[in-house]
Write a protein that binds this DNA or RNA. Structure first.
Lengths: 114, 114
DNA sequence: CATAATACCTCGCCTGTCAAGGTATTTTGT
DNA sequence: ACAAAATACCTTGACAGGCGAGGTATTATG
């Protein structure tokens, strides 16, 4: 089972920020971590991930720096900024709020029906 | 507080179908019912609503018929089809699944961190 | 008698996802 | 030794859904 694009849309930024809240990381690792933490059930598509990085950096919610790997492929690390942390908490609040509204609307039970 | 377009996206169809599961209804009433059932906290934008109707009817998840009002403006009623009911249950399952995944990803707690 | 409410609809912009394509390096299996 | 897989980055362009802005017509209300 997979999550439809239209459902994941609007959450990718928060998902990425949540990872960066734990520690600085880079694209490939973030994706693997998401896979791992959802028991291989969910992963962001690469194109989605990298376009999100671009967007988040433009908004100054994250900043990037190249790692100094002596071995392996070069890695571009991302760190969450203070502004990013603030936004993350807002996004999480928004999610909790939206979740409750959607739950209500899909429950199909109206008490105050006319 | 309002729900961002990107979060609502992917749920409008299910929200509309949920209403039609209760009873046949028309655009204006559906929107008012959504408003009422969320304590005026949420409503679909008209353009979103009508484009959803079009999409859902093309997919044969709903069908429409004109009401025979003797008074007031004409109303276009919508009814959910059997296919629509099936799809609704799928959508609801998808929502429950996605909700759990998103909750997990926004919890920022990794037990199996390397 | 104007304004709000009811009720429908379309056009075109904007944004985010993602399939498909690309590059370069390193590790692994045979 | 060499091919294949894994690691790691990135761009382009198509596509779809939300919605602002605009429109029409009728009825109710202050």
């Amino acid at each position: 089972m997979s999550i439809a694009s239209d459902i994941i849309r609007g959450h990718t930024d928060a998902i990425i920020l949540a990872r960066l809240l734990l520690k600085d990381s880079y694209g490939y690792e973030i994706n693997k971590a998401i896979l791992r933490s959802t028991d291989q059930e969910f992963e962001l598509k690469e194109a989605t991930l990298y376009s999100a990085f671009k967007r988040l950096e433009e908004l100054a919610l994250i900043r990037s720096y190249w790692g100094d790997e002596t071995t392996g492929a070069r890695r571009k690390y991302y760190a969450i900024t203070d502004k990013g942390k603030e936004e993350y908490y807002k996004m999480k609040k928004d999610w909790l709020y939206a979740r409750q509204i959607i739950d209500k609307l899909l429950s199909s039970e109206d008490i105050y029906e006319e």
